[in-house]
Simulated assay, not measured.
Amino acid sequence: MKGSRKESLEERLQRLDAELAKRRTEDNADDVAEEKAAESRKGYAAAMKLSSEFVAAIIVGALLGYLVDRFAGTAPWGMIVLLLLGFCAGVLNVMRSAGMVASPHPVDRMAGRDAAGKTNTNKDGA
């Protein structure tokens, strides 16, 4: 009688171990899926940020161009020039946000230093 109890206990322990192993693998799979989803959300957020910065710069350039043309009577040149400037500003903003172009440090801009860190000492700016 003791032998059958011990055998049934061992069988139950083996089934329990198998069930626990199965649940652990399911939990690990859920964790991996959640990590992939979080990474996907981060990528989507970055894409929305970059695209909205680009579009906003173009729209601002176009609106300013329209206003210049409207009040100065320079149609269509104000719109063309400021639309192109807005496009360039949008590209620069996207490149800065993506980390491809570093924005100059405010101290360097105020001190008159160039990108290599050298101070511009010539009076003629060369």
Rank of each mutant, 00 (worst) to 15 (best):
C88S: 08
D27H: 04
A102F: 00
V101Y: 15
D69F: 07
S103G: 09
T121Y: 04
D27K: 03
A29Y: 04
A18S: 15
L83V: 15
M110V: 12
R96K: 13
A21K: 12
G65W: 10
Q14V: 02
R12Q: 13
G65Y: 13
G112N: 11
T119F: 00
A98G: 14
Q14E: 10
L9A: 14
A45Y: 11
N93A: 09
A115Y: 04
G86N: 09
P104T: 15
S8W: 02
A46L: 09
E19G: 00
G86C: 13
D27S: 03
L16C: 04
E34K: 10
D31C: 06
S51F: 09
L82Q: 09
S97L: 11
W77V: 01
W77D: 03
V60I: 12
E11N: 13
K42I: 03
R113Q: 02
T121S: 01
C88L: 11
G61S: 14
G117Q: 03
V101K: 12
E26C: 06
T119Q: 01
A98Y: 10
L67P: 00
V55P: 04
L9C: 12
R23G: 00
F87H: 03
K22E: 15
T119Y: 00
K123C: 04
V91Y: 08
N28R: 12
I59Q: 07
L85A: 07
E35L: 04
R109C: 14
N120H: 12
L84S: 09
T74E: 11
A111G: 05
G90F: 14
L85Q: 02
S103L: 05
V101C: 14
M100L: 15
H105V: 08
I59G: 02
V68Y: 05
V55N: 03
L20F: 13
I80L: 11
L20R: 04
G112V: 09
Y66W: 13
A75I: 00
R109D: 11
A102M: 01
A102C: 01
D17V: 03
F71E: 15
R24I: 12
L64H: 05
S4G: 01
A29T: 00
R109Q: 08
L85D: 03
A115F: 08
G112S: 06
L9P: 13
N120D: 09
D30Q: 09
E7Q: 08
Y66E: 08
R15V: 05
K49M: 09
G65R: 07
A46C: 03
A116Q: 06
E35T: 06
V32C: 04
R12W: 08
E10Q: 13
T119N: 01
G125V: 01
M48T: 13
G90R: 11
E34V: 04
A21M: 06
V91C: 05
F71V: 14
S52I: 07
